[in-house]
Design a protein around this nucleic acid. Sequence first.
DNA 1: TTCAATAAGAATGCTCACGC
DNA 2: GCGTGAGCATTCTTATTGAA
Length: 330
Amino acid sequence: MKEKLIQEISTAMAEVLSFEQVAHLNSVLLQVVSQYTITEDGETLHENAASNDRLLDIFLSAKQVEGCTTPTIKYYGSTIRQLFKKMPKKVTDYTTEDIRAYLAVFQRKNKSSKVTIDNIRRIFSSFFAWLEEEDYIVKSPVRRIHKVKTGTQVKEVLSDENIEQLRDSCTKIRDLAIIDLLASTGMRVGELVKLNREDINFTERECIVFGKGNKERIVYFNARAKIHLQQYLSSRKDRNKALFVSLAKPHKRLEISGVETRLRKIGRTAKIVRVHPHKFRRTLATMAIDKGMPVEQVQRLLGHVKIDTTMHYAMVNQNNVKLSHRKFIN
DNA sequence: TTCAATAAGAATGCTCACGC
DNA sequence: GCGTGAGCATTCTTATTGAA
């Protein structure tokens, strides 16, 4: 028991101490610990942690069987493990107050938004509901914690000037093509990186993208995007079928994060903060609605399943409400 | 050494099915 | 029909890797 304790402390400290220091720490701990009797508390904690981990593993594999993807499983695992770490007790002993306190502390400590807290609550809810179903606990402690009400806030968009500044800051024809394509089609970054060269129809200035859930739709780009894209493709020397590849040698298909970092960097040179692919999408939708494009058509263009999602963009500009009021009501 | 790209993890956004 | 729970995608930031 004592050896185990010492072993655990020195392993934890090994990251910050040198080999000699760890050895010294070991001998000091041995001397100090020999004067005391270690109670079984620690042992119980260990057992709790072990059985909690086991249950979590079963839960995660159950979720996997139900068809959850790997990122979800990972996110669930890390979130629940954090709870176990902060509150080392048996899952059966968790009370509603424990969970509430954990969420409150988490929010204060990390200055998290309500949405984040609600996400965590959702994950706990899923886990404890499963424990309840599987008869490990009588009643889920999360059942009494209700959805965290979250307000909606208006998201910022890029102005015409911003987009021009970004274009001016591009040093590579590839980046210019990416920006023009994103700005004129409003496609998701996930759709952009999945594109192949043959998906582009230059004569019709359109291309087929595969969106969320492998749904197919057609998006349209402008003349500027067409020219830059053609210039970029003719400058390429590799044989990769991907539409956008990395600048450096292996010339592999560009990843989502690759596009993101690249855009952020261009944004920094242009002195525009928080430039990311989704901002172009938002900008396109807001501008289209501003200029009077019917919401149903914008919905088609963006590939939204529900019109509510598209309507979020329509609410951005209060000026339109004023204009429409003058136009239709006065 | 430097720069581009990826990896990882937390936060946030979007979609859909289901139950009331 | 509306609100909510759940699943997954995207965003955002930082650390790490790898090639020139």
